[in-house]
Design a protein around this nucleic acid. Sequence first.
DNA 1: AATGAATGAGAGTTCATTCAT
DNA 2: AATGAATGAACTCTCATTCAT
Lengths: 215, 215, 215, 215
Amino acid sequence: MQDDRLTPRKRPRQRRSRQTVDAILDAAARVFSQRGYAGGTTNHIAAAAGVSVGSLYDYFPNKDAILVALVERQLATMVDRVQDHLRSARESAGSLEGLLRRFVVAMLSVHETQPDLYHAVSAEAPHPPELHACVLQMEESLAHALEVLLLESDEVALADSDTAAHLVVQTSEALTHRFVHQGIHDVTRERFIDEAVRLLHAYLTAPPLTEASVT
Amino acid sequence: MQDDRLTPRKRPRQRRSRQTVDAILDAAARVFSQRGYAGGTTNHIAAAAGVSVGSLYDYFPNKDAILVALVERQLATMVDRVQDHLRSARESAGSLEGLLRRFVVAMLSVHETQPDLYHAVSAEAPHPPELHACVLQMEESLAHALEVLLLESDEVALADSDTAAHLVVQTSEALTHRFVHQGIHDVTRERFIDEAVRLLHAYLTAPPLTEASVT
Amino acid sequence: MQDDRLTPRKRPRQRRSRQTVDAILDAAARVFSQRGYAGGTTNHIAAAAGVSVGSLYDYFPNKDAILVALVERQLATMVDRVQDHLRSARESAGSLEGLLRRFVVAMLSVHETQPDLYHAVSAEAPHPPELHACVLQMEESLAHALEVLLLESDEVALADSDTAAHLVVQTSEALTHRFVHQGIHDVTRERFIDEAVRLLHAYLTAPPLTEASVT
Amino acid sequence: MQDDRLTPRKRPRQRRSRQTVDAILDAAARVFSQRGYAGGTTNHIAAAAGVSVGSLYDYFPNKDAILVALVERQLATMVDRVQDHLRSARESAGSLEGLLRRFVVAMLSVHETQPDLYHAVSAEAPHPPELHACVLQMEESLAHALEVLLLESDEVALADSDTAAHLVVQTSEALTHRFVHQGIHDVTRERFIDEAVRLLHAYLTAPPLTEASVT
DNA sequence: AATGAATGAGAGTTCATTCAT
DNA sequence: AATGAATGAACTCTCATTCAT
């Protein structure tokens, strides 16, 4: 029971079920975007998905589970898209700056895809551990993909490429999210990209600190 | 009436009232920390504050208004504390690195003060425009205070110190928040500070980009 | 949305739903009769109807809407019953006095059916425009039905049968309502009917006024 | 306790108190007119009267008691004014029709004085027995005053002048109230007066019924 | 005599969830 | 497998009333 609280109920192996689950998640994305998480009721979602509430509860044990599944799907897509960008960047064997630019643009476009949904989720929804796990995993994936590329670049000389990759992911994630949802100062999109790239590039090519760490 | 939806009701001018308002906000901070925003009911808050629900509603027109007031107070405190740190940094006339270190540490300690409250607010609560405005103002204040110091430093040579200051605030805010609430990879606190400082320092001392911006 | 504030939610087309709606209205009639409008809570009504509050709110958007629907139903019934009386009076082709007597008796018995409900509604309940509209329509219906009969009677010679019919409806409505709920002086039911009939009969057969109208 | 529920607390014999009570009743009249009975809170009334809630409760045991006192005062005024009209009618020794016209006009103007207050009270307020008693007494007074005049008129020949006077009061009360608040059909004020007078005059001069009373 | 901050029971209403069909 | 009517716990908020000052 405790375990089932946030994982889908039926393993939708049959095609029909898969479609239903997808329809529900699509509907949930629409509904949460428009009404927010709290305002989007399970009845709204079911109606938008063209199924009955009962069916919805056949596939998901509760409202939060829908959110988790939705975020999982969303993040997986996000990772895929960003990794695609990175892969093509690798093939074109460009400079570090070019790589970072592609990365930032990819993150930006991902956030621009469904800004309201991102907002509803990040601003309003409950954040059960499952959600955090998803996010962590997403970041892990991105960080790993990025690290591989960084290690190949001869511009980068880092003691701890692992941590650096994570910080890059964190920072670009936070900055792009913020830029899409509220803007930053009076910065334009182009300017924002330039600054973000400059920031990441500087970090990755900077020498170690000179002063001792004192907390 | 529409306007009053999120602003306090009685202007608490007398000492007694001030205390009551503070008691309510303190209680709200505790309750939201422990139960989250949705789970923290107005009756919980009133009880925790040692007043009746009725009194609570004498001072705040609704639950959201409590949140807004709470965040306002919290952010104002935050700005004060960070600015204190910056001021002392300025007086000790240290290096840019030292300045940034103080800044990061200040941000970190601020987030560490009431981590659950921050989480409850950022993760669960509704984000009415008033709240965004508070956050923007907080960032504006910090960015401005920071910019002044940056302009005094001869290590920094920036075309647009304004935007740079904002990015620094954004980034440190996002990274420290994240670090406090979920950690980053397996990075220790000391290590995190070093990396954050290095990132900010590199950004502020880096040369302009070499490649043209192409979106 | 604004419009729906007082109209039923689900159109109860299926038999099951119809029954539920009727059960709720019956319960509301009972509850309002016993406890008054303010004292009759939606939970009372739901319990008395044998449904949950939730179901009640499936069919009615709020408490007032229940009242409006209840009054609508009640008045429709009232009109039907009085018109039935009038129809049979017409068929028996009696005198004007006989007609009026039937009319008064019909009005009286209608008010006697659920006196407390009438009291609760007229004394305590909010009177939204919808309610007034119902009452006006009821009176219009009765006035029209009555006018037809009056025009057939050769005892009546009125310049303005329309206005006369309305006054007759108003007067009989007011007098019977009052008689049922508080009595008039120490008049018996029989006596009351006689006097009311005499009053209406005199009015309908009286000559025009002799004096000029001076306000 | 039971007894005190609706009667004023302090017997306000001193001038100061009298003034306060009057101020409260005046305020209550204004507040109920504008906000209705339910919407007019005791705090509103106290504020409008320029006293504190506490003082208000020094003079009245509860909200209903304010209403009762208000209605008492209003009805007493009403009776006075109508009786004044009747007295002057008597002195001018006019016809029955003239008398009735004065009576109807008096009733009309009384209702026109504070229509919203009348509406708030009759449509929204709880009607405790005390209120009914007030109304009954008012009607009794009017009926008695009227009866005296009717007995003096040689146009009237009634078996039971007492009952007739009551019916006249009832009818004119009901019709004028209704006319002021919702209008009747599309009848003008002048026309309404004429018809009401004609109705009352016809009733008072009509012969007894010809048919036996059969219920 | 007067104040007005404080009280708290209780109202209307919502919506995640169930289960008879 | 699917339905959707029904559930009811739990929420926010009001306002008549009290009582320490």
